[in-house]
Amino acid sequence: REWTEQETLLLLEALEMYKDDWNKVSEHVGSRTQDECILHFLR
Rank of each mutant, 00 (worst) to 15 (best):
S26F: 01
L11G: 10
D35F: 06
R32L: 01
R1K: 15
L9K: 14
N23M: 11
L42K: 15
Q6K: 08
H40R: 12
L10Q: 10
A14L: 01
E7K: 00
E13Y: 02
W22I: 02
E7W: 00
T33H: 07
D20H: 11
F41P: 15
G30F: 05
W22C: 01
E36L: 00
A14W: 00
T33F: 02
V29G: 01
V25K: 10
E13G: 07
E7T: 01
K24N: 03
V29I: 00
W22V: 03
R1V: 14
F41D: 15
V29R: 00
L10I: 05
E2V: 14
M17T: 09
E27T: 08
D20V: 03
Q34Y: 11
D21S: 09
T4E: 09
E2D: 15
W22M: 04
T8W: 07
D35I: 04
L39R: 12
L9Q: 14
E27R: 10
L42Y: 13
A14T: 00
D35A: 12
L15E: 14
E16L: 01
L9G: 13
Q6L: 08
S26L: 06
E16A: 10
S26T: 12
F41I: 06
G30C: 09
L11M: 05
L9N: 12
I38M: 13
H40E: 15
Q6P: 11
E27Y: 03
R1T: 14
S26I: 03
E36K: 03
K24G: 12
E36P: 01
T8K: 12
E2T: 15
C37I: 15
W3D: 12
E27I: 06
K24H: 08
D35V: 02
T4F: 05
R1L: 12
E5Y: 12
E16G: 08
Y18R: 02
R1G: 13
E36A: 03
K19P: 09
L39P: 06
C37S: 04
E5R: 05
L9C: 13
L42C: 11
N23S: 12
T4R: 06
K19N: 14
K24M: 14
K19R: 08
Y18T: 04
L11Q: 02
E2M: 13
Q34P: 10
K24T: 10
L15H: 15
T33E: 06
S26E: 12
L42I: 15
K24S: 09
L15G: 09
D21Q: 08
E27G: 09
W3K: 15
L15S: 13
Q34M: 06
V29Q: 02
L9P: 05
E2L: 13
V29M: 12
T8E: 12
K19Y: 04
R1E: 14
I38F: 10
K19L: 03
D35E: 09
E27W: 03
T33L: 10
E7S: 00
R1F: 15
E2C: 03
Q34N: 11
D35G: 11
E27L: 03
E13K: 09
F41R: 15
K19C: 05
E5A: 07
E2S: 15
W22Q: 00
V25C: 14
E5Q: 13
Y18Q: 03
M17A: 07
Q34T: 13
F41W: 14
N23C: 12
Q6G: 10
H28V: 05
K24E: 13
S31T: 14
E13M: 07
L11H: 03
E7L: 01
R32V: 03
S31K: 10
Y18N: 10
Q6C: 04
L39M: 13
E5P: 04
K24Y: 08
R1D: 14
T33V: 04
R32Y: 04
E16V: 03
C37E: 02
E2P: 14
R1C: 14
Q34K: 14
E7G: 01
E5C: 08
T33A: 11
K24V: 04
R32F: 04
C37G: 01
E13H: 06
S26H: 12
E36T: 02
W22H: 06
E27M: 07
H40N: 05
N23A: 13
G30M: 05
T33M: 05
E16P: 10
Q6S: 10
L15P: 02
W22N: 01
C37R: 02
K24P: 03
S31R: 07
E5K: 12
K19S: 06
Q6Y: 07
R32H: 04
E36N: 02
L11S: 01
L11R: 02
W3A: 02
A14Q: 01
C37V: 08
S31D: 11
Q6E: 03
E5G: 06
A14S: 07
I38T: 14
D20E: 09
L39D: 15
T8D: 07
D20L: 03
D21M: 01
R1W: 05
L42R: 15
M17G: 08
G30T: 09
D20A: 07
E13C: 02
Y18H: 12
T8H: 14
V29S: 00
S31G: 11
L12W: 08
C37P: 01
E13L: 02
D21A: 07
S26Y: 06
I38P: 04
E27H: 04
H40I: 04
S31P: 04
T8C: 10
W3Y: 05
D20N: 09
H40C: 05
C37H: 05
K24W: 05
E36F: 03
D35L: 06
T8Q: 14
Q34D: 09
S26V: 12
Y18G: 08
H40A: 09
L11A: 05
S31V: 07
I38R: 15
I38V: 10
V25D: 03
E16R: 11
D20M: 05
S31W: 10
L42H: 15
G30Y: 08
C37A: 05
E5N: 05
L15R: 15
V25I: 14
E7C: 00
L42E: 15
E13Q: 05
S31N: 11
A14K: 00
Q34W: 02
N23G: 12
E5D: 02
H28T: 06
L10P: 04
S31M: 11
M17C: 06
W22S: 00
V29F: 02
A14V: 00
Y18I: 08
R32P: 00
N23L: 11
I38S: 14
S31I: 13
H28D: 00
H28C: 04
H40D: 07
Q6V: 08
V25A: 10
W22F: 04
G30R: 07
W3N: 07
H28N: 00
E13I: 01
E36C: 05
D35N: 14
T4C: 01
R1Q: 15
V29P: 00
R32W: 02
W3E: 04
E7A: 03
T33D: 12
M17K: 12
I38H: 15
E16D: 08
V29D: 01
L39Q: 12
E27F: 05
L15D: 14
R1S: 14
M17V: 10
D35Q: 15
V25Y: 01
L10K: 11
E5F: 05
E13D: 07
L42V: 14
I38N: 14
R32A: 03
E36D: 10
K19V: 06
W3I: 06
H40Y: 14
L39A: 13
W3Q: 06
N23W: 08
K24A: 13
H28R: 06
L15T: 14
Q6F: 07
T4G: 01
F41A: 13
E7Y: 00
H28M: 05
E7N: 00
I38D: 10
Q34S: 11
L10V: 11
L42P: 13
L9Y: 10
A14C: 01
D20K: 11
V25G: 01
C37T: 03
V25M: 11
V29H: 00
M17N: 11
G30V: 10
E2N: 14
W3R: 04
L42G: 15
N23Q: 09
L15K: 15
I38Q: 12
D20Y: 09
K19G: 06
N23H: 10
L42W: 11
T4S: 11
L12S: 08
L39G: 13
W3P: 09
L11V: 07
E5L: 04
M17Y: 09
S26A: 14
S31C: 09
G30W: 01
A14H: 00
F41T: 11
L11K: 02
H28W: 08
L15A: 15
L39S: 12
A14E: 01
Q34C: 12
S31Q: 13
A14D: 01
F41S: 14
T33K: 11
F41G: 15
L42F: 13
K19F: 08
N23K: 11
L39Y: 08
E7V: 01
R1Y: 11
C37L: 00
E7R: 00
L10S: 10
E13F: 00
H40P: 02
